[in-house]
Design a protein around this nucleic acid. Sequence first.
DNA 1: GTACCGGTACTCGGATATAGTATGTCCGAGTATGCGTGG
DNA 2: CCACGCATACTCGGACATACTATATCCGAGTACCGGTAC
Lengths: 158, 158
Amino acid sequence: MKLSQGVEWGLHCTSLLAQAPADRPIRRDVLAGHYGLPDAYLAKHLQALTRAGVLHALPGPRGGYRLARSPERITVLDVVEAIEGSTSAFVCQEIRQRGTGAVSPDQCSNPCAIRSVMDQADAAWRDSLRGVTVADLVDRLPPGVRERNADLLAAAGG
Amino acid sequence: MKLSQGVEWGLHCTSLLAQAPADRPIRRDVLAGHYGLPDAYLAKHLQALTRAGVLHALPGPRGGYRLARSPERITVLDVVEAIEGSTSAFVCQEIRQRGTGAVSPDQCSNPCAIRSVMDQADAAWRDSLRGVTVADLVDRLPPGVRERNADLLAAAGG
DNA sequence: GTACCGGTACTCGGATATAGTATGTCCGAGTATGCGTGG
DNA sequence: CCACGCATACTCGGACATACTATATCCGAGTACCGGTAC
């Protein structure tokens, strides 16, 4: 049930990348150092974000990561699903069709009520995350932080 | 991120208990047999439900499990939280206060935007589950199933 | 002076160990029953 | 005949192995840059 910590890492790194000039890739070790994270492991999650089309990775000198599109068009859900996967948290194993109380398959054309309820809750969760963008996250930063981050990124990229 | 399969087991067993006479405890092996589950492991989850006050366990001969209160007063969320725990799926590790980009603690009196968003989504998920009761689940069973279950439970208890 | 070419240093990407949690199983603690016994 | 006490069988509860996934790390593939060289 617990979400991977990579979700938090991914959201922070994505919103940090949104605070850098769009044409300036940020190296992975800069991102890791900014938040005190192990960059070798951070690589795995950034890689997932890249595969999902949220980030764009640029190899070689002057390489690094940048957002694949504008922060207004990246939702929190995009980041979460890139790292955690888009499959529902609840997986129905159809135990109603097993054991002595097994229900005949032709009575199971509709998904069972339990599955429906869990799927509906899952949809509510995803809808909530879909309603917030990375740009919103940046807007909600305490005053002064955005400017300081821009300076730090510029210094690191120097 | 994936929910334990025990959630499905717990919900099915709880709704099945709601279909039995309230004064008739159902043995664990009957529940396990009804759904084809390993009763030794099912014990663990039923135990969690008992500790959470959803079920009531009765030891000794003629013992078993029964609902601790009427099905109308048991929400799906009660069952889920009993098994999965009531802690939020997202745990904020406050990485914004670590690394070279560390934000000063006095600027962190408010929870960070990321945490707020995740907590809000979690609340939406829980609200959705809180809105459905075990009685609702029983009502949504296919026609005939409820009667058949009652018969099976009566035969097993006999 | 300019264009081409090769070496080099730097970046990310995937394959590889380790730890923590979910899964699965077992035996012991506790209780109502049923029988035997005494009044 | 009735009440009491005890042995018994049956139930759940918590301690003990195992499997899988999340965590953490390393080295190799690929790319842009920079200098040297030929024209």
